[in-house]
């Protein structure tokens, strides 16, 4: 168990050291998310539509798109020079590799989201401060579900010839439930509703997270096999 934890943390540490050196992933994800928001602002007439109504959707589309970029990049790094094979040769459980990648994806994406939120607040003139805690909870639940499934599928897609195209094609239809859930919840939170009014959605996203982490643990052995 101790070794398991130290292996997971070694993978996360390795991803962070790489990122601190190259700064490729974070800057790409951040700028891309910003661009998605901008493009949506230009394509939606904010003088007609209420910002708090379209805002949540735009925010999550930005998160998902740039998150996909990050997932792709993170497994391309592992495939370069056959590093993934090196990882698989180490006396580590396959689930340690999965959790290592899951945690580093989750942390990168969360940091990016934290940077995007203030900009979102300014662009859409929505005051997020008073709803910050429930909002962060919802964002965490959504991001965890995205990363749980995304890490599994990007490790799968990384072995395909057309991985950049296949990852979103595989991932997005499966993410529909969680997207509907988090966009709904974000909208309701911004409308001032309490968390207790959306327990069904919280239950849905939380069980999505749990089930897909469970499925990943059970199937990752079959994906990380040469």
């Amino acid at each position: 168990m101790n070794l398991f934890l130290s292996q997971v943390s070694a993978i996360v540490w390795k991803d962070f050291v790489t990122e601190l050196k190259t700064r490729e992933l974070f800057s790409a994800m951040f700028i891309f998310a910003l661009l998605v928001i901008l493009i949506f602002i230009f394509s939606v007439n904010l003088s007609i539509v209420k910002a708090s109504e379209v805002g949540p959707g735009i925010l999550w589309v930005a998160f998902l798109f740039s998150g996909t970029l990050g997932l792709n990049r993170s497994f391309v790094l592992e495939k370069e020079n056959g590093c993934l094979m090196g990882l698989m040769l180490a006396p580590a459980d396959r689930t340690a590799i999965y959790f290592g990648k899951l945690i580093s994806n989750l942390v990168f994406l969360s940091i990016m989201e934290l940077f995007i939120l203030p900009l979102f607040m300014i662009f859409f003139n929505i005051d997020l401060i008073e709803y910050l805690l429930p909002l962060l909870l919802v964002i965490f639940l959504g991001t965890l579900g995205f990363c749980a499934l995304g890490t599994l599928l990007s490790s799968l897609a990384s072995n395909l010839k057309t991985r950049e195209i296949m990852l979103p094609i595989l991932l997005y239809p499966l993410l529909v439930p969680i997207v509907i859930g988090v966009v709904r919840m974000t909208g309701q939170i911004l409308a001032g509703e309490p968390l207790s009014g959306m327990m069904n959605w919280i239950g849905l996203t939380a069980s999505f997270d749990i089930i897909y982490i469970g499925v990943s643990i059970m199937t990752i052995d079959h994906i990380l096999e040469e």
């Binding site: 499934l149 239809p173 499966l174 529909v176 969680i178 859930g181 849905l204 089930i211």
Partner: peptide
Amino acid sequence: IVGFLNIPFIHFSV
């Protein structure tokens, strides 16, 4: 497997 397990989630969310 992942796709079929998604069906209940799709059902309720939609």
